[in-house]
């Protein structure tokens, strides 16, 4: 691990200002992803701003009947929160499908959104990776890419976003609240939060330098049947090959978001035709997919998983 200086932040705006002033600074909260990457020197911040002391760990009702989730709410606490279990079961289920209990006890809401890809070439400094070292190439293209992206990728990067939680947040139309280095605040719809990799796969979100996530806000509960189904190589503690989150309403309206297939949680609102079967929804959802020989199986897997989930939701 490279040496770094360290401070404990006392105020969100001050933390953002400090990070904006120092290009080599990173925020640290749970640390479950950043510290792992620092040990491998894939991340090498010169300064860490510990945000754990900020009071951003509340879950509170909003005026319109939604829920404001503090950036520091731990994944375990969010999954177990009574109101989330009752009103946003998709979110609870997605969180519980991710990582291990130990990791969920430390990983935070904001950190989960910002976690880096688990592409094996990103993790191996000996390999070319445009995300880790811009311009160095992509060893995944001609390599072991069975679990990499089939949608929304580019010819520079086919990494996937690994989060389960973000898939639920995308289906629920979450909004992300931030504070910037100049003290101003803004709100970003999760649909606009992640950047397509294009020629700059190292730039993953629209956050500016020093911009700190302070909360994630959910609109009022949607009701309906909410199911999160994660397909993986082992029954627990593994990243998704494909995951499908749905909200199905009694009147036939449906929302579908996918994980494990793209550099961001994947949703195509135009595919969500009321009462449509899995084949019809999947054909729109997977429109424009680009597969390799190894990961082409993800397309029929998405359709079949969606069919099973819709059957269950509509039963």
């Amino acid at each position: 691990m490279k040496s770094f200086t360290y401070e404990r932040a006392a105020d969100p705006a001050a933390a953002a200002a400090q990070a904006a002033r120092n290009p080599g600074a990173r925020f640290i909260a749970g640390g479950t992803n950043l510290l792992d990457l620092m040990k491998l020197q894939i991340e090498a911040p010169v300064h860490l701003i510990d945000v754990n002391g900020l009071t951003l760990d509340d879950v509170a009702a909003t005026n319109d009947g939604g829920l404001r989730i503090g950036a520091l709410v731990r994944n375990a606490d969010l999954a177990a929160h009574p109101q989330v279990r009752r009103d946003y079961p998709l979110l609870s289920r997605a969180l519980l499908a991710g990582a291990s209990a130990q990791l969920r006890n430390r990983a935070t809401t904001a950190g989960n959104l910002l976690q880096r890809t688990r592409c094996p070439y990103f993790y191996d400094p000996q390999q070319a990776c445009n995300k880790r070292l811009p311009g160095s190439g992509c060893a995944a293209m001609g390599g072991f890419n069975r679990n990499l992206a089939v949608l929304g990728a580019s010819d520079k990067c086919i990494a996937t976003h690994p989060s389960d939680m973000a898939v639920a947040m995308r289906a629920l139309d979450a909004r992300i609240e931030t504070v910037r280095g100049d003290g101003s605040t803004r709100e970003i719809a999760i649909a606009q939060f992640y950047r397509a990799p294009g020629d700059t796969p190292h730039l993953e979100t629209v956050l500016g330098r020093g911009e700190l996530i302070t909360a994630v806000v959910l609109p009022p509960p949607l009701g309906g049947r909410q199911i999160y189904h994660k397909v993986r190589d082992r029954a627990s503690y593994a990243f998704a090959i494909v995951s499908v989150g749905v909200v199905v309403q009694p009147d036939g309206h449906v929302r579908v978001a996918l994980g494990g297939v793209a550099p961001q949680p994947w949703r195509v609102e135009a595919a969500e035709q009321p009462r449509a079967d899995a084949r019809r929804i999947a054909s729109r959802l997977l429109d424009g997919a680009r597969t390799t020989e190894q990961n082409a199986f993800k397309l029929p897997l998405v359709e079949r998983t969606l069919a099973a989930v819709l059957d269950e939701a509509r039963a």
């Binding site: 360290y6 640290i28 640390g31 479950t32 510290l35 792992d36 860490l48 510990d50 754990n52 375990a76 291990s100 209990a101 130990q102 990791l103 006890n105 430390r106």
Partner: peptide
């Protein structure tokens, strides 16, 4: 999970937490 300890009543991986945190 070999490094699991209990911090403030919760089990965590002590390898993925800086002491200073």
């Amino acid at each position: 999970g070999a490094c699991t300890v209990i911090a403030d009543g919760r089990r965590i991986n002590s390898c993925l937490s800086l002491a200073v945190m």
